[in-house]
Amino acid sequence: MGEFFSKLFSGTIPLEAYIVVSLIMFFSGIYGFLSRKSLLMILISIELILNSIDINFAVFNRYLYPGNMEGFFFALFTIAISACETAVAIAIVINIYRNLNNVEVDSMTELREPSANETEIKEVNE
């Protein structure tokens, strides 16, 4: 038991430890992306996913090619791109909110041919 703990707190932190952390972050993001209805929640999930990728870039660069900077810069660029993406996405979200008064994905059906059962629901609602 003590041996196990001493192993945990000695030597270098293995590459796999970082990857497991980013894995958890990544699949939390996947879960959020697949299950949440709010557009903002989906955006938050996407941020999680992108962030976990950043960690991977940095870690692999640090462990495998410590002399080079590719992963480092890709992480940097990814951050910039996610900033762009968020800015545009939030502009869209605000616009949608202005038109539909909510930001749920299910209500964005304007361009879709309504399926038979949705038309029924609409009629009932009206």
């Binding site: 996947i30 992306f33 697949l34 299950s35 994905v105 299910d106 059906t109």
Partner: peptide
């Protein structure tokens, strides 16, 4: 037209 469904299938 549901993005989440597409993403599900894709993943």
């Amino acid at each position: 037209g549901r993005v989440q469904q597409y993403a599900f299938v894709f993943l």
